[in-house]
């Protein structure tokens, strides 16, 4: 039975609302990490490491090391917020709290529950990005108005990482197993997606490998937008992330159905 898209969106938003209601009660705690994390990194790398590194050449432009990593920190924050929300937090709701089981007795469908969870994970990416922007802008490291586009980019990146996180959530036997995707997927991306050094410095084979990682494309977007560069080549990165969402989201929903509907 098909529902009109607007009805699906409305019901999906019910899941989002549920998480928002909970978030509002704990927002003071949730605000702290995105506020402090960039400060720590900028301090450690900007003050500590940049003396050793000096300047970095990025797409023909010489940049201070702090300016180079600041947008990557935004991208990492986008990844982490959605990824951890839709792995650990979603798993707790699904497995320990039986929240999804309860909701499945209402008119909401499993697809709407999973979509609502992913959109919520992306929302946390957007909130985190907004807070970080305030901090990083204080250092004069974001060019406006282009920098504001980082917010929709955070939504897109959050949807991509939320979807893949949900796919992991649908298959892990227990919560400890998340160590595996964190160690094998998140950590390598954190290090090798052009975050702390340009992808170009990697060997060719490694570079093409890095091009498969979603964070590489997200970093490309956050970095160019932070510097105020807006050109058509960015559409490749947007296209990659859209395609990633389009493929992974139905997979996550399908696996989740196999897991929960018995």
């Amino acid at each position: 039975m098909k529902s009109p898209p607007i009805a699906v969106i409305r019901r999906t938003s019910r899941i989002w609302q549920r998480n928002w209601t909970v978030y509002r009660q704990t927002w003071k705690i949730s605000f702290v990490p995105p506020l402090l994390e960039p400060l720590f990194y900028l301090l450690a790398f900007g003050v500590g490491l940049s003396a050793l590194v000096g300047e970095v050449s990025y797409r023909g432009e010489a940049l201070s090391y702090v300016a180079f990593i600041a947008p990557a920190l935004v991208a990492i924050n986008i990844m982490n917020n959605a990824f951890f929300e839709n792995t650990y937090a979603s798993f707790v709701r699904m497995y320990y709290q039986k929240t999804f089981d309860a909701i499945l007795a209402t008119p909401l469908s499993l697809t709407e529950i999973i979509l609502g969870e992913i959109v919520w994970g992306a929302t946390k990416s957007v909130i985190g990005t907004a807070i970080m922007l305030v901090v990083i802008s204080a250092f004069g490291l974001i060019a406006y108005p282009h920098g504001l586009l980082l917010l929709p980019v955070a939504l897109l990146g959050g949807l991509a990482f939320g979807a893949i996180a949900m796919l992991f959530t649908s298959v892990v036997p227990n919560i400890e197993t998340f160590n595996l995707p964190v160690f094998l997927f998140v950590t390598p991306m954190f290090l090798f997606s052009g975050t702390f050094f340009p992808v170009d410095t990697l060997p060719v084979w490694f570079r093409s490998l890095a091009l498969f990682l979603p964070l590489t494309h997200l970093v490309r977007l956050t970095r160019d937008l932070a510097y105020g560069r807006l050109d058509l080549s960015l559409l490749w990165a947007v296209g990659y992330l859209l395609l990633f969402c389009a493929i992974v989201t139905p997979l996550a929903i399908g696996r989740m159905r196999r897991r929960l509907i018995r």
Partner: peptide
């Protein structure tokens, strides 16, 4: 299957939204 993240009253009101 009550929602432990919410209060007693919120459990009812949040559930009402699903309907």
């Amino acid at each position: 299957t009550l929602d432990p993240d919410l209060t007693v009253q919120q459990n009812l009101e949040v559930f009402a939204r699903y309907f």
